[in-house]
Write a protein that binds this DNA or RNA. Structure first.
Lengths: 333, 333
DNA sequence: GTGAAAGCGCTAACAA
DNA sequence: TTGTTAGCGCTTTCAC
């Protein structure tokens, strides 16, 4: 139907292997034939057929991107679309394709991965969320399929991952509050079993220690990533302790905190900080201090790590730490 | 490397063609052989190789999804991620793959499309944004490549598209304000050359007419989708006219309006309505009345239209109108 | 109802 | 430096 390599070969008076070599940039082709072939390709507007190439090479130059379910509220966090865009950028720069799939749950994810891999659809996998004892990772390893995760992994040394330096980010945020004269700083975070929460908690604790402020376990609360949950957590804390500042691991938790402050009309100046710098942060009154985590960079580097592994075999670099940026706004002035 | 159809054929004591027929659901296969083959496929954990199938069929069951550039601010609007999820849902239900690409500009988009199509990567295209005199659409048509757009098209009768009923949505919104006793309702929208703006303007005008309120062209302003632009537009309007309500075509424009109201401390009760029901809407003070456009449905139906066309040839149904939902909040009480 | 064989368009030994 | 040839793993006529 379309113009094929054979058409090019005939018109250029060479064999298809020569055309194939020209396309793949093989060195041992004379300048003359190379030019001749390129010219004919141009004239015929020839584009190599990807299916045929994939079959012959047993490679697809395609990465499988697993996204959370459409029904998961947190999918709508701008995090994902930015990661998606970052991945696309690096992939495009290196002539890779991205195939994505929103998966409903762990089983669905397993099915999708199994199919992607066994049917030879993809050469590697990008996971945007990682569970505890993630079955997907076990599957990927058992099938020897290269993968990268957005978010650190500690279980396997050779795992590829990208992440923010969450310890430092929270350290800086906490120190910012301490410098503002705050002494009773509460911490509200997601489930502490997750790396991301745990790291941020460590950064918080370290900042307190370094500034000779006693760490008080009662000032630390776990929450789900919901406004209501932040609201409840903050209530629990203030029922027991004096608080003059709060750090959280997501803006939405900070909004929950503010709801309590507004409801109770707490006149005392309580500084509140979010995390992830969602668009809401700058629209709230007061605008919310938060931490920008450069999601696009995360996606870009995830694709980078994975593709480099695919091209070069087992690479030395297995992870990237992406910078964060403290955005100070009215809520902590 | 992997288990192939040949392996299955040998173990099941049939030919590869029989295996192929079983997989494709061919009717003229005896129940016995069908069962036998399925059993062996199961035992061997056989998954048909997609590249080989694609090559043999000259089809890929893959849709190409074109997303705006990562640098475009509006990409971060939850609109896109929801559309993406909706597309994935229908595609998955029908065993299609989705390959996406974020394109930097019209030329990049043309290049991407050209490659996707000529290299036989995809069977159809989903465009998430449509320009005036869109070169991409001309390309798709000239290459006879099935496509669907998110957003109505009027230029070609046979084009596939999905959209909201923007006329009605804005009609209802405007009428809601009229019922609240508002008489001087301003309209701030995007570029009127775009269908989406034009339709919403028509709905606004129609609601005024039906309620015997004179349409005043000076109360209509165009703006970019930026807070600042909504801010400026509203200033222009109130410099000339009395206003007791404003409808906009996006929440962000409504936020611009509020900025003026706050700055000037306009005590009079001005009702303000947004559109697209972004997450910001319910976090603002006052919370913002807006219109939920069910983006996931848009994506789902876009994939549906396109896949149906691919499977059945030229279909009778060429478009879907997706419902909208008026979400009344504090800003118009 | 099933098998043989050609072919989808490309790649990659192996020869020359 | 280039051509010949045999696949890659599946689909699909055509024959029986």
């Amino acid at each position: 139907m379309n113009v094929t390599m054979k058409d090019v070969a005939i018109k250029a008076n060479v064999s298809t292997s020569t055309v194939s070599r020209v396309i793949s940039g093989n060195k041992k082709i004379s300048d003359d034939t190379r030019k001749k072939v390129f010219k004919v390709m141009e004239e015929l507007n020839y584009h190599p057929n990807v299916s045929a190439r994939n079959l012959a090479r047993s490679k697809t130059r395609t990465l499988g991107l697993i996204l959370p379910s459409a029904t998961k509220e947190f999918l709508h966090n701008p995090f994902f679309i930015k990661v998606i865009a970052g991945i696309s950028k690096f992939a495009k720069e290196n002539d890779y394709y991205i195939m994505y799939s929103n998966t409903e749950n762990e089983d669905d994810e397993i099915d999708t991965l199994n199919h992607f891999i066994r049917a030879g659809v993809v050469d590697g996998i990008i996971l945007t969320t990682v569970r505890l004892n993630d079955k997907s990772i076990e599957l990927l390893r058992s099938l020897d399929m290269p993968y990268v995760t957005i978010g650190r992994q500690r279980k396997y040394k050779d795992s590829l991952w990208v992440d923010n330096d969450n310890v430092n980010a929270m350290y800086n945020l906490t120190e910012h509050l301490i410098k503002k004269g705050k002494k009773n700083i509460a911490f509200i975070g997601g489930n502490i079993k997750y790396n991301v929460t745990n790291d941020r908690l460590n950064g918080y604790e370290k900042a307190l220690n370094d500034n000779k402020i006693a760490f008080n376990n009662g000032m630390v609360e776990e929450a789900e990533y919901l406004e209501k949950s932040g609201y409840d957590a903050f209530k629990r804390i203030i029922s027991k302790f004096e608080v003059d500042a709060v750090v959280t691991t997501d803006d939405v938790l900070a909004f929950g905190v503010y709801k309590v402050i507004e409801e109770r009309n707490l006149t005392k100046n309580i500084a509140v900080a979010g995390f992830n710098n969602t668009p809401l942060a700058e629209y709230r009154k007061p605008t919310l201090t938060s931490v920008d985590i450069l999601e696009e960079e995360l996606g870009y580097n995830a694709a980078k790590l994975l593709i480099e592994k695919l091209e070069n075999g087992n690479a030395e670099i297995t992870n990237y730490i992406v910078d964060t940026k403290l955005i100070v706004r009215e809520s902590t002035l």
